[in-house]
Amino acid sequence: MKAAAQRRRNWAGWLFVLPAAAFYVVFVIQPLAMTVQYSLYSWDGIGVATWNGVQNYLRVFTDPDLFAAILNALKLIVFFSAVPVMLGLAIAATIRRIAASRLALVARTVIFLPQVIPLVAAGITWSWLLSSTGLVNQLLTAVGLEGITRAWLGDFSTALPAVGVIGAWVLLGLCTLLLLAGMSKIDPALYEAARLDGAGPLREFFSITLPSLRQEIGVCVTVTVVAALASFDIVYISTQGGPGNASMVPGLEIYYLAFSEREVGLASALAVVLTVLVIACALPIQWLTRDRSS
């Protein structure tokens, strides 16, 4: 009797999930299915679409401009992900011991700012800093490096790295604080023991800190890799993908294709490729760094 009531009650619990599921299905799952559907058509967004099979996908991988955008997104991972995570590790390890000091508490707030402001604002700010008359060139000139000053976002060889620097600036604070929080959970006795064994800071870092941070590092890498692959706001504001197509990324290319060139089918094929790419990168990282104990 009781079991039956229990089961009925559990089925009634579905009513609680229904609203959430409705929003999710209508505004995420449905559009996702539509993206896949659009990607098989040739459509200008206004007239009637014609069936196009896998042609759009072939173009994504053979059109040098489109493929270059995907490669650019992969290159951005170096800046959005590798730099903040490694620099964040180094910084967190250095300031670990003074993490409770007044200065560190203030710093916590300050280095979090880039994470709070809109990416658009970061883009506008940095476009100005990296312009030919901007602060970056002013500083370089001041230290005698006038020879390398340039319009960083307008130069073929530096536009993409410059976009990367903006991303690194945004994500460094988040990574540092995440890793610092992870380090604070490490048992101090481990460090004491290591010190007694005569371990220096370096060995301490590699034998204690790093292994204990598996989960935090995994999170940092996932968040930043997704940010790199799906970047849009910063590129849209700072370079619009130029010069040439030097800093074009898939997110921006989808936007251009769908809404200015009205190649909705091609845009959708690229969107599917991007979505698959993001999931293909995020899942293994999650799996590799999952905390197996829980």
Binding site: P31, L32, M34, F232, Y255, A267, V272
Partner: peptide, 8 residues
């Protein structure tokens, strides 16, 4: 990624 579904 939001770009994946923004067109539809």
């Amino acid at each position: 990624p939001f770009e994946g579904i923004v067109t539809p």
